[in-house]
Simulated scan of single mutants.
Amino acid sequence: MSDAAVNIDQARRALTTRFAAAGLDSPEIDARMLMGAALQLDLTGLVTQGARSLSAEDSARLDALAQRRLAGEPVARILGAKEFWGLAFKLSTETLVPRPDTETVVEAALDHVRGTGSVNDPLRIADLGTGSGAILLALLSELPQSFGIGTDISVGALRTARDNAVALGLGDRAAFVACSYASALSGPFDLVVSNPPYIPGGDIAGLAIEVRAHDPARALDGGADGLDAYRALIPQAAALLRPGGAVAVEVGQGQAGDVEGLMTDAGFTADLTMIRADLAGIPRVVLGRKKPI
C-alpha cells in the first residue's frame, strides 16, 4: 500500500487488482476476506464503511496478509478457519482445508439415511480420518439423535476436531479416538464415512502450492496408486457395519471404479453400491450398502 491515505473501497479494489495480476483464481473474494480480517469487519461493514480511510496500522496488517496470499498460502490457512456445510470450522496445521467437493460425501450419506427412514433414529456414525471433523459434524448437525466417533492418527487433528465439536454445540454427541482408520473401533455402526488420502505419491509435487505446501502430506499421499487407504479402511468398514448400514468415501478423479471393486471384494454386492458425482460432474463418492439380513 502507498503512504497516501486510501479508503476501504479503494484499498479493496487495489488488492483485487493485485491478486488478479498474480493469477489468483478468486481475487475479489480473497481481497474481501482478507480486508475483513485485517479490519475486523464483515461484508456489511466493508460496504457501509467503504469511505473510511485506512490508518497506517490498517494498511500494514492488510499488506502482511496480502503478502502471505501472494506467496501461495490459502485464505483459509491465513484466517485459520473455513466454512463447510454452512458451519464454521477451525483449522490447524494437522488438518486439511475442507473443500466443497467433500460436501458430496455428506449429501450421499444423508440420502442413504433418508432412504432408510432413519433420520430421527439414534444412529452410530464413524468418520475415519476425521481431520477437522467436518464430515462427521456436518452429519451430526443434520441427524439430531445420532452419535459419532471420529478417528485420526494425528492427535493434533483430533484436538482441532474436538474444539470444533464443542464450538458447534455437538460436543456431547461426538467422541474422538487416535488410531489408524477403524483399527481401535468395534461395531456395530450404521454409517461409516471417510475422505482418506487418495493422491498418488508421485503426483504430489505437481499439486498447486496451496495444497502441496500447506496441507499435511499424510492427509494427501495415498501411496503409489492412491488406493492404499481404501484397501485398509473398506474391509474395516464392512466388519463394523450392521446389516443395511453404509460406507461412503470420497475418491479422486478416475478412482471410482477401482474403489467400487474394493467394496465388492469386501462383500458389498454390486447392486448395493452407488457412485455420486460432484457439482463438476466428476465421480466423487462411492457408497456401499451392507446387505440386510
Score class of each variant (00 low, 15 high):
residue 3 D to H: 12
residue 4 A to K: 10
residue 4 A to E: 14
residue 7 N to V: 06
residue 8 I to E: 00
residue 14 A to Y: 00
residue 15 L to C: 10
residue 19 F to I: 01
residue 21 A to D: 15
residue 24 L to M: 12
residue 26 S to R: 14
residue 26 S to T: 15
residue 27 P to M: 07
residue 34 L to N: 01
residue 41 L to I: 09
residue 46 L to R: 01
residue 51 A to E: 14
residue 56 A to P: 01
residue 61 R to K: 15
residue 63 D to P: 00
residue 63 D to M: 10
residue 65 L to F: 11
residue 68 R to L: 13
residue 69 R to C: 02
residue 71 A to T: 05
residue 72 G to H: 07
residue 74 P to K: 07
residue 84 F to L: 08
residue 88 A to S: 15
residue 98 P to S: 03
residue 100 P to G: 12
residue 101 D to G: 11
residue 102 T to L: 07
residue 109 A to D: 12
residue 115 G to A: 13
residue 115 G to W: 14
residue 119 V to G: 01
residue 121 D to Y: 03
residue 121 D to K: 13
residue 126 A to G: 15
residue 138 A to I: 13
residue 145 Q to C: 12
residue 159 R to G: 02
residue 161 A to Q: 04
residue 161 A to N: 12
residue 171 G to L: 10
residue 172 D to G: 04
residue 179 C to T: 10
residue 180 S to M: 08
residue 180 S to V: 10
residue 191 L to A: 05
residue 192 V to E: 02
residue 204 I to K: 05
residue 210 E to R: 06
residue 211 V to K: 08
residue 211 V to R: 05
residue 216 P to L: 12
residue 217 A to L: 15
residue 218 R to L: 14
residue 220 L to G: 05
residue 222 G to C: 06
residue 225 D to P: 00
residue 233 L to V: 04
residue 239 A to H: 09
residue 245 G to S: 04
residue 249 V to P: 00
residue 252 G to Y: 09
residue 255 Q to G: 12
residue 262 L to K: 06
residue 275 I to T: 15
residue 281 G to W: 07
residue 282 I to S: 02
